[in-house]
Design a protein around this nucleic acid. Structure first.
Length: 121
RNA sequence: UCAGUCGGCCGGACGGCCGCUCCGGCAACGGCCGAAAGGCCGCCGGGGAGGAAAGUCCGGGCUCCCUUGACAUGCGGUGCCGGAUAACGUCCGGCGGGGGUGACCCCAGGGAAAGUGCCACAGAGAUCGAACCGCUUCCCCCACCCUUCAUAGGGGUGGGGCGAGCAAGGGUGAAAAGGUGCGGUAAGAGCGCACCGCGGCUCCGGCAACGGGGCCGGCAUGGCAAACCCCACCGGGAGCAAAACCGAAUAGGGACGGCACAGCGGUCAGUUCGCGCUCGCGCGAUAACACCGCGGGGCGAUGUCAGGCCCGCCGUCCGGGUAGGUUGCUCGAGGCAGUGUGCAAACAUUGUCCCAGAGGAAUGGCCGUCACGUAUCGUUCGCCACAAGCGGGCGGUGCCCUACAGAACCCGGCUUACAGGCUGGCUGAUGAU
RNA sequence: GGCCACGUGGCGGAGUGGUUACGCAGCGGUCUGCAAAACCGUUUACUCCGGUUCAAUUCCGGACGUGGCCU
C-alpha cells in the first residue's frame, strides 16, 4: 500500500465517490492500471493548529493500519479528510466507523458508476 | 515568618504490543529482480522536535538578479556616552530624567536662539507677545457732604468720560513670558536684593555622555521633530516555492522532407476552348501567379475608430521549457567541561562530543505502573477546654491522565504564548537571640 | 515555507491630530380604509493593548483577526 503524494491525484479522487462520517470523510476512486492500493490524508487549516492537525493525521493513519486489508480494493485510490472530531473521538469507535464507511463507499461506487465497473478484490 | 523584587534551570519517568523515517552493516541467514555489478524487502546496530520549533519584527550567512567600482541625489532605517559582536533596532557598563520606603523598575533620551508648519474649543491675548475685568493718576463733567449768612472759591466721598502709567490680582486654557520671599512704588514691575532655576565664560574630575566649583548677565529662549525638516551614522533588490542539473505528455518555435492548393466575387479574359448561325456576330465555359474588393479567426493593458501583422496537414531532427525527479540539506559565528583576561556583555585557549534531516511532509497509535497537581470522601494528628475553623499525614474515588505548542535552508537576537515545579541573590515589615 | 495588503454602526463605504460623512437596513411618526412609495425624526461604530501628545480613529510599537500572491 502506497501513500498518495501528488496534488493531481488528490484532485482526481475528490471527484469520485465520498462518504461522510463523524470524524472524517472518505473518498475513493478506481484507477485503470495494475498499481497497488494508494491512500492519502487531507487535514485543512480549519481544523486547528499545526499540532492538532498532525495529531488528527496520525490517528487516521493508525486507523488505516489497523483496518483489515479486505476492506480496500486493489488499484483504487482513497483519501481520508480529517475532521476536528478525530482529535478526541474514541479510537475503537472510529475504527468501526471506518469499516462501515468503506462498505458504504463500495455500494455507492457500484450504484453510481456504469455497471461494467465491477468491484474487484 | 510574611510580603516583594531580580535572575538561572526543568518542563513528566519507566515498561509492553504494533508501526514511521534517516544513516551504517550486509562478513552470515531468508525471499524477490537481474547475465553480472548490484538493488529492494525481511534482518542487525544507531539517531530522531522546542524553549519558544510560533509571530516573521530586526541582523547575518547562502543563492540568483542588477550595478558589475566609487561618489552624489532620492528613498528607508537608527539616534545620550563608551564597550561587546560577523552584524543588529540586540546585549553589557555608565550618564541624565521619572516612579517606588527599598531591592528595583520605566524612558525613540540628538537638534526648537537654520527654516517651514500646527496649537481645536475657551479666552482680551497662543508667539517679531497681549490688555477684557482690574489697579494708580492729570484734566473735565455730575451728585452728595463739609467750610461760608449765602454764592463763588476750597476740601472730601462716590460715579462717568478722555488721556497717561502698570501688569500685582481675577477669569480662560494643556500651556499666559522665570518661581518664592523681602524691599520699593501713585499703583506696580528683575526696578533692587537673597535663594532656586536659566544662559554665557572659565577651572577641576572623567576616554566620553556628564558631574562639581567660581565669576558674570537681571532673564532673553512656550510646547510639538513617534509634523516636515537639519545633523551624524547605516542600507543595491529579491528570496531555498532562491538557485543548479536531468527532463515526459500536450501546445507552441526553428530547420528539413512529403502531401495538399483550400472562403467568395472581379481583373487576368478584345485570351483560349466549345456550340450556333444570318459569317462576324451571339451564347456558354475558362487555370495558376499576381493585383483589387468583400469577408472569417487570432494578436497590442482596456473601449471605439482607422491601420498593421499572422493563418493548412503529416513525419523526422534541434533548442527552450512545464509536470516530475535529483541536488541545494546540514560540521556550525556548533554543543559541553576546564583554565585565563575583563565589573560585565564577551573574548582567548585546552580537552571532548557529533547531536533530526522530512518533503501531501517522519519523530507516532493503543495501553499499564508510578510520581506530581486538583476536587471530594473517610480517618488521624497539631493549634484549642470543647465545637467551629485553619494546617499537616495516610487511604479511596474522579478529573487532568499534562501547559503553550510541531523542525521545513541555517545561525544571532527581539516579541508573544505557557499547567506545574526546582533553585540562587537582594529588599521591606514583624518576631526571637 | 516565504512575500504583501486591510481591520470604521446590522451591511456597504468616505474621511481626518480637536465630538466620524453618506447610502441601504432597523425603529417611531406623517400620509392611507390598509399597505407600498415619499417625507420627517431617531438608535447603533473607529479590532485589542501600550507609548508620544494638552488631546489619538488618525502618529509609533506590539498582539489578534481577515484577505491576496508565489506553489
Amino acid at each position: 500500500m502506497d501513500r498518495l503524494r501528488q496534488r493531481a491525484d488528490f484532485l482526481a479522487v475528490a471527484n469520485g465517490a465520498r462518504v461522510n462520517s463523524g470524524a472524517f470523510v472518505l473518498q475513493g476512486r478506481r484507477r485503470d492500471d495494475n498499481g497497488p492500493i494508494r491512500i492519502g490524508f487531507t487535514v485543512s487549516r480549519k481544523n486547528g493548529t499545526a499540532t492538532e492537525r498532525n495529531r488528527i493525521r496520525r490517528r487516521l493513519r493508525e486507523l488505516v493500519k489497523r483496518l483489515e486489508p479486505v476492506s480496500m480494493h486493489a488499484h483504487h485510490d482513497y483519501v481520508l479528510v480529517g475532521r476536528r472530531a478525530a482529535l478526541t473521538s474514541d479510537f475503537a469507535a472510529m475504527l468501526d466507523d471506518l469499516r462501515s464507511a468503506f462498505r458504504r463507499l463500495e455500494r455507492q461506487a457500484t450504484k453510481s458508476r456504469a455497471p461494467a465497473a465491477t468491484p474487484i478484490g
